[in-house]
């Protein structure tokens, strides 16, 4: 059970990114967080595990208040919060299994992880999660050899390897084709039901959200403007969230494609000396 109380975030020299956001997420509930780009969706889920520091407010995960924790205690709590990313955020040059095991890093010492001496129970669990997402036979492949959908499955397995009490999911389908998107959303939903996990999913695709989540929260300019069941999401609500548009057609999802690393000209020069 997660509870956000009057959460606000103010970036330097800009408007409030989050304005007094409060809601509870009971166990097993999957929440779809929708809203236009820049509404604060990404900020909101990153404030929960404090990848971004919130300015005001409180966050309770079960009985632990997260915003006041010291660095070492925060690390212990972060282990309980699994996160899944839009561009998968895998380490491409490591194997699938290593990527899954990187989810357990909070539970092992540096030297154990350095020599890849993970405790046997963790290894068996990691294999279990890989089997659950259907990638067991790919365990020893390098992550960059997988397709987009497969990479996202590895991302899910990594989050599960943390033994989480909460899942934060940031645009899980924005880089995937429609069919794979549905498969991934179905998998996330099933896993949350199996394990009675609460989850918050940032999502652009309203139709996809309506199909797979239990509850939808609409965010606009950092404020909650809608909180209800997917079926209550009609054209007038969408207009409040996104502004005026012909809602009978499927909303196009705009992708925030991350910029590929540009070969550094300066380095190139240095190498020719």
């Amino acid at each position: 059970m997660l509870s956000l109380q009057q959460l606000s975030k103010q970036y330097k020299n800009s408007e409030l990114a989050l304005d007094n956001v409060s809601f509870d997420v009971p166990s097993g509930q999957v929440i779809g967080l929708i809203g236009p780009s820049g509404a604060g969706k990404s900020t909101l889920i990153r404030c929960i595990n404090r990848l971004i520091e919130p300015t005001h407010g409180a966050i309770y995960l079960d009985d632990v208040e997260l915003t006041q924790l010291s660095t070492s205690k925060l690390r212990k709590q972060r282990r309980r919060i699994g996160m899944i990313f839009q561009e998968y955020a895998l380490v491409e040059r490591l194997s699938v299994m290593e990527n899954v095991l990187s989810g357990t890093l909070g539970y092992v010492s540096f030297w154990q992880s350095f020599f890849r001496k993970f405790p046997e129970p963790l290894l068996q669990k990691a294999f279990g999660y890989l089997e659950r997402v259907g990638l067991l036979e790919h365990a020893n492949k390098r992550a960059d050899q997988l397709s987009g959908g497969q990479k996202q499955r590895v991302g899910i397995a990594r989050a599960l390897a943390q033994e989480p009490s909460l899942l934060l999911i940031d645009e899980p389908t924005a880089s995937l084709d429609p069919k794979t998107s549905r498969q991934i959303m179905r998998l996330i939903k099933e896993i949350c039901k199996e394990r009675n996990l609460p989850a918050i999913i940032n999502i652009h695709d309203v139709v996809l959200a309506q199909t797979y989540v239990d509850r939808i929260i609409g965010l606009k300019a950092g404020k909650i403007v809608f909180d209800g069941s997917p079926s209550a999401l009609n054209a007038s609500v969408l207009t409040t969230i996104y502004g005026k548009e012909e809602w009978n057609t499927t909303p196009a999802c705009e992708e925030e494609v991350s910029i590929a690393p540009v070969p550094n000209f300066q380095t190139k020069l240095e190498l020719a000396i």
Binding site: L51, R75, E92, L94
Partner: peptide, 27 residues
């Protein structure tokens, strides 16, 4: 480097050294 894996490992509760060893070193 690609910052996404670094953020992902930070989110798992990995320590500073583990983050460097798992996300930066391979890259």
């Amino acid at each position: 480097i690609d910052k996404a894996p670094l953020e992902a490992l930070k989110a798992t509760g990995a320590s500073w050294l583990q983050m460097i060893h798992y996300s930066i070193v391979p890259q």
